[in-house]
Design a protein around this nucleic acid. Structure first.
Lengths: 360, 360
DNA sequence: TCAGTTCATGGAAGGGCTTCCATGAACAAA
DNA sequence: TTTGTTCATGGAAGCCCTTCCATGAACTGA
């Protein structure tokens, strides 16, 4: 009986972590001094620090990050919410964000959203428990209720590739980018230009449509609704996916002689699908149809897709910068940044004859 | 002077977080009772719980996650180390991992590795500070020193898509997959079959080569070194990239009449590059050259690439499962799992005439 | 009625750090 | 010598929880 009791003493072995007290005892100093040594603080004698550091490494002492975070009242962690299912765009963005944060010794939580209908659930989770010092939300359109929640959250929030009047945001200049892309086709001599777009419920889809309109109108060109395809959201990702592009292109191909000579396609993934449909129809790109996309996903360079390149790294850098700033001083004023995409000319627009490989 | 002192009183406002003490006071109970209420623990009267929960939500009380983690001596966080630059394979894997962890209310730290030469630095960071309960390492080959470090780390480690004798691991059956892929080509009647592979310093490259060998030998076919291309690692990612595939294919195309009638290409990204080279050379796939790849990256279905599909979701599920198990009971025995990839037949192998769209 | 049991409750201890205040040694200036 | 000043140091208090133990009310059965 008593043996049984002794057997299940609570400390089950693995909890033999070395603490700051162990180091202090071993070094014959106080815990405050050890803390100062570990944190490279002032008011400590160089010799003392050296001795403590040696003993610490001898004992294999690692400060407990959780205890530090509690005592410092700071988590050194940023949360990111990512619509993972969407497209590979986010991988790059995330990579850059992680790099930026790494430089400042911040850790990154990643929460993926795989269905729009559980988005708010994920948000609640991110907002709960104050585990992070800041939040980055990628490419998600918030409802008014959650925008409000985020605005009054204890931690600052920055939207990346999405915007909301009440929250800091960084977006690509979608309208302007679409305008540049469309004008590129116009300058190449095209007059009958169509567009494949995503669901107009999505913010980028609306802006890109607007840019397309402006370019066409500015050059006095006709906007024929027949050659405009807004993919619906049913296939997922607001219609910004390969399948939707493929189907939209098939519809356009059915127009036969009414087919436009050029297309602005609002997302590279859609362009990939559209190109598949065109190949199947035995038409040639750019000779029969010229194409300009938008995004410059990794794959675009492999298929020679002329497109609008999003400055992802810049976006990541600025978003992190802003977030860190908000974390330390909660600046007043709003912050709404627009970054210009850049035209990357490859083969599908017909401006060049030789294959162009744009290095990453 | 005194004013100056008063002005910079330490609490700068934002620290008005509600604590468990505030709730206890407001409810007229002890903090233990509030804790029990919040955690749905036993030994609390239903009425009391209800009252406390109401007051808590009224005060907008959120338990401090960091304090919980300290008190519970558990972080509820898993770290993942990902060679982000590599290819999009990881995005899916990560997505599944995050989903699995989300179900168990674990958070996920993501650390990206963008250069192999700072890999160990990242590892040190992950091992430091005991911020996590477990570690997942994706597709990275550890040196003996770090394998040892991880083995003796305070937290369990599982390798995913990589293996090491001393550590738990889950890998794809690369050898067997390569064998199946090659046999598929053999069954289609091909006799002169070549291979494009990555740098043999990488584990998957070696295994896939081995599977290729076995298939060929088993069917009494000749292994002509001239049609075997091991891309070197200079272009990055152990030669598993589009550019390397493109260049390797150009070398093969220079063989003219000695060109193989079929190719097993060890990574889909390489296959993409190879296909580009073939198109440029005005040859047809699969008529002039049949191709089977490996990985089934998202893009493969768009280009009709026949390939070996990696069971990523399964891999993620099992890895997380194993990690959680290790966290609670540190099982003895080793854990080395191999999952079989599955042949996905599309157009590039020539087995089918019609375009096949494999839905995601 | 009384000992025994169950269970809701309060609150101290503990988790491992940072930080602030007090102390006293060493040194400088008068 | 005395009075300051500077600075390394020790350690209590505090960060915000969970958990365990002690308490006493309520109930049970004899």
């Amino acid at each position: 009986m008593p043996q049984g009791k002794i057997a299940l003493n609570k400390k089950q072995g693995p909890d033999l972590a070395v603490t700051i007290y162990d180091v202090a005892r071993a070094a014959g100093v106080g815990i405050g001094t050890v803390s100062r040594a570990m944190n490279n603080a002032n008011h400590i004698h160089p010799d003392t620090r050296k001795r403590i550091m040696e003993i610490a490494s001898q004992l294999n002492y690692q400060p407990n990050g959780v205890a530090q975070r509690l005592a410092r009242r700071k988590t050194f962690t940023i949360a990111s919410v990512v619509p993972f299912f969407f497209n590979y765009f986010y991988l790059d963005l995330l990579k850059y964000i992680q790099n930026e944060l790494g430089h400042c010794h911040y850790d990154l939580f990643v929460y993926s959203i795989d269905r729009f209908d559980n988005m708010n659930q994920v948000f609640d989770r991110v907002l709960a428990e104050r585990k992070t010092d800041g939040i980055l939300i990628l490419s998600l359109e918030l409802g008014a209720d959650y925008a409000e929640k985020f605005r009054h959250a204890k931690v600052p929030v920055v939207l990346v590739d999405a915007t909301h009047a009440q929250l800091d945001s960084i977006v690509i200049a979608n309208r302007k980018g679409a305008l540049v892309a469309t004008e590129h086709l116009i300058h190449l001599g095209h007059r009958r230009i169509g567009m494949i777009n995503g669901d107009l419920n999505s913010f980028p889809a609306r802006s890109r449509l607007q840019g397309f309109h402006e370019a066409m109108q500015h050059h006095g060109l006709e906007l024929d609704p027949i050659v405009m395809r807004m993919c619906d959201a049913q296939t997922g990702a607001h219609g910004f996916n390969e399948q939707a592009g493929y189907l939209a292109m098939q519809e356009l191909l059915a127009l036969k002689s009414a087919l436009p000579t050029a297309l602005f396609i609002a997302a590279d993934v859609q362009a990939v699908g559209a190109m598949r449909a065109i190949h199947e129809a035995r038409l040639r790109i750019p000779d029969d149809i010229a194409i300009v996309g938008f995004d410059d996903i990794d794959f675009s360079k492999y298929i020679g897709l002329t497109t609008m390149k999003q400055p992802l790294q810049e976006m990541a850098r600025l978003a992190v910068q802003r977030l860190l700033l908000c974390m330390e001083c909660r600046p007043d004023g709003d912050f709404h940044l627009e970054l210009n995409p850049k035209l990357v000319v490859r083969q599908t627009c017909g401006a060049k004859k030789q294959p162009v490989i744009v290095s990453v």
